[in-house]
Amino acid sequence: MSNELLKVENLEVQFKSGSTVTKAVNGVSFTLNRKENIGIVGESGSGKSVTATSLLRLIPTPPGNISGGKILFEGKDLLTLSDKEMRDIRGNDISMIFQDPLTSLNPVFSVGDQIMESIKLHQKVSKKEAKQKAIQMLQLVGIPAPEKRLNMYPHEFSGGMRQRVMIAIALSCNPKLLIADEPTTALDVTVQAQILELMKKLQDEFNTSIIMITHDLGVVWEICHKVLVMYAGNVIEYGTVEEIHDQPMHPYTWGLLDSQITESVEDHEMLTTIPGSPPDLRQEIKGCPFAPRCSYARDICFSKAPEMVEVKEKHFVACHFQTKETRLNRKERSTHVRAVVKS
């Protein structure tokens, strides 16, 4: 059994509306090993959720369309499978947790029915066994009195409890890959800590790999081994969490890291921000998509799109300039940026 679980090559997703085409994802590639967690970070509209939903082919078609690339899951290309084969994979080998647990649970079915649904669909078990398994799952995700809770409806649960139910549904068939789309964004910090702890614990138990989509870098440091930084549908930097945190190479990643408020930011120092806003994906982007907002941009950035280069072992970046500034720490970086802007 090879160690490689998922390999995404040059994934392209477009949305058509009338005569305009929005290139939401524009050539995303990465690999994920077994028992490894990868974080996808970026601002809203950077294509992180579209990437994740296309992995399961859940993009509404039309208007959406996976227009190119390969998604190799254990060597099989998911894009060539029939709808029936795909159904066998969804919820069984690959499952997903969504951001808002209230809208993603069905209000008219009891929590037990919803957990049993995927068990009955994918495993040849009797109703009784499925119920047993559902109780066991609820217990595992830390819901007290699972026999009683099984017959309750989503509205009777709190936000954190609902997300636990979602996790129970997602893990009920021991998936090899779990895609979590902002699973803790809607939750309080205390509950977020509980859920992340739970995900770590269950990962050890089920040997699941996790793709974690988030805009909170703190969550990434908490749970992921690798990070994919996305901007305007492109991956602009990709590497291990330690590499990305300690030696980020792309100016956008610097901006992202520096605009986080952490304990090391002093009281009255101004926060570093990224000027401008992301580009309109309906228009053809020439050159580097980040160039208009980048304080280092030169002529070449506006005419030629940078390619992904492996600057170091397992650290890829798409930027024309990987200069020595990359080794500066946060404070030096911000003074440097200011100097560049002035000159």
């Binding site: 977020q192 800590a193 440091w221 908490e222 330690e242 945190h245």
Partner: peptide
């Protein structure tokens, strides 16, 4: 104390 401890990590080395 619990609230403060629940703030996510600042770096992967934390």
């Amino acid at each position: 104390k619990a609230l403060l401890s629940a703030i996510p990590k600042e770096s992967p080395h934390d």
